[in-house]
Design a protein around this nucleic acid. Sequence first.
DNA 1: ATATTTTAAGACCTTTTTATCTTTTATTAA
DNA 2: TTAATAAAAGATAAAAAGGTCTTAAAATAT
Lengths: 143, 143
Amino acid sequence: MLSSASKYAINAVLYLAVESSEDKKIGAKEVAEAIGVPTPFLAKLLQNLAKKNVISSLKGPKGGFFLSEENKSLKLISVVEHIDGLSKFEECVLGLKNCSNDKPCPIHFSVQPFKNTMFDELSNNTIEAFAVKVRNGETFLHY
Amino acid sequence: MLSSASKYAINAVLYLAVESSEDKKIGAKEVAEAIGVPTPFLAKLLQNLAKKNVISSLKGPKGGFFLSEENKSLKLISVVEHIDGLSKFEECVLGLKNCSNDKPCPIHFSVQPFKNTMFDELSNNTIEAFAVKVRNGETFLHY
DNA sequence: ATATTTTAAGACCTTTTTATCTTTTATTAA
DNA sequence: TTAATAAAAGATAAAAAGGTCTTAAAATAT
Ligand code: FES
Ligand code: FES
């Protein structure tokens, strides 16, 4: 459904949204251990997201990863977008050339509406919005 | 979303449902060229599906792959099931231990409807039912 | 200034997925 | 019964995804 890379990244970004701030930066190791994913692999993902300004980072003592207010106002889809790209949401599920209602593949009408809904949910809601629900105890990050 | 293997297999099985019969078996090469996927790779997939009785095959001249009436009455999900397995539809999209409405991950409610509906559509409709729509010109297999 | 901390960068390894090729076996038709 | 045909089986190879490690660079505190 999503690549492991995207899964780890969404988890990590939401962890940072809940736990970190400009004053409380968090190291890659701490994030990885908290969400239970391989540390060096996650570190790479966080570096990529930082380079693309989806999250923020600072080197040195007291440094680490964190989310600025600007970062938190990004839509959650931007995490997936910068790691997997959006092709998954654009292409035909069966790999046909164009996905459209005009020339639909056999499972187009079974799948397309929900593909779109999933994409819209991730595209319309900010990282902060998802984090709020975690803070409220409506949804959960770890086990 | 689905693996290439599953995509190819669904395409091929529906092609066979539309084009083949006990009297008109079709070689792996012809199927692969018709749906535009790599021949030897598809041949392996068809062999696997035949071994698992999702499709039928016969060796020798006039041999090839085809769908028996019994095959056609299988649900389309069985193609995916025998190639990718069903874990994709059962597991939490973010990889959390259990996917449930009780302890939902942050994107559970955004994604779960898509996962479930897609699974239900493929689980409730037979291969023949999808093939009928292709024959009627309601949906399409190639480009 | 210097030592320390932590990200950044990039090389490297492993596993899984995708793809190909060759040999064997079963079936049919002549 | 022999030649031709096409799947079955299995070995192999290439590419992508997943994961690790080492070194460099930046920031901080002493
Ligand atoms: S045409 Fe296949 S999903 Fe739209
Ligand atoms: S808990 Fe994550 S999708 Fe259900």
